[in-house]
Design a binder for these strands. Sequence first.
DNA 1: AAATGTCTCAACCGCAAGGGT
DNA 2: GACCCTTGCGGTTGAGACATT
Length: 326
Amino acid sequence: MGRSPCCDESGLKKGPWTPEEDDKLIKHIQKHGHGSWRALPKLAGLNRCGKSCRLRWTNYLRPDIKRGKFSQEEEQSILNLHAILGNKWSAIATHLPGRTDNEIKNFWNTHLKKKLIQMGFDPMTHRPRTDIFSSLPHLIALANLKELIENPSWEDQAMRFQNEAVQMARLNQYLQCLLQPPASMAASFQNNLNTINTNMMLNTPYLELPTPPPSLANYNANFQAINDSIPFSHMPDLQVPCSLQTSLNRDMVQANSPFAVLNQGENSTSSPWLPPTISPTPSPAGAPPMTETSNTNTGDACSTSSYGGAPLWSELLDDPIFHEIA
DNA sequence: AAATGTCTCAACCGCAAGGGT
DNA sequence: GACCCTTGCGGTTGAGACATT
């Protein structure tokens, strides 16, 4: 495994290490320490560059390296630390005894990053992605709602999430239709989406929340099971059903909704995503929050009445265009 | 069973920081 | 201050393993 030699200008060997080379390196370091990495290869009788030796030692041969799968706790730690430190792999590694920065980086790139993306989170900021197309996972969750309600078994849900890619394509198509003329329909959809998101998020006594359909309790339990199966408890809102919509809206509310005042009243200084005492990595300047875009597009001023309306789950699901495509 | 696609992760590359002269 | 050398870090690559068709 590993990268193949790309050049051999200096006559030094590159590429995967043999057991003999490993043995030489280990014995030399055990006896003399690594000293100058540049000088080490000659002293150890290795036809390698010092850099290669250092990498092999620090990432693979060091005796205190813990190998094998990452535990749930380690995974959780990486997520938490990455939310604070960003791609500072060496800094993250210092908090995970026995794990190397390279190993953590690989684990992040192959597992954790994908998970976050699938759940609609920006892997760099750990915040919900706010442009409409990158929020498709949120919408997919909505698209799954009806079937989830009718089909509460875990196996079926798992199957459905595996088909996410197909549904994303369909939903994309659906959105394309909606965002084209007639503008009234697009505006209606966007308005519905805003309202759905807000209703799902604002678990607050200040608002009159819509009454959920009777089968929603099943749905909530199912969603909880899904959330429980994915170790993202560092994001507090993932503990509740419809977490994806919830988090999306938290962003929305914090940014510019009329309910920002309510939100600030509870926790005026710290981000809900990060520990309060540590400054997060600044988010890159990105697209404006969803509501800003949508409000501009639809002319909806985010009035209080629009947030206190009837439940709109069914309105989305009953949309004939959605069913025509899906 | 073979072909093809996808995933994993060890190892490489280039750059930057820090220290010495 | 300028230059050189060494070390460390983060991004990327690609062979091999594994899964799917």
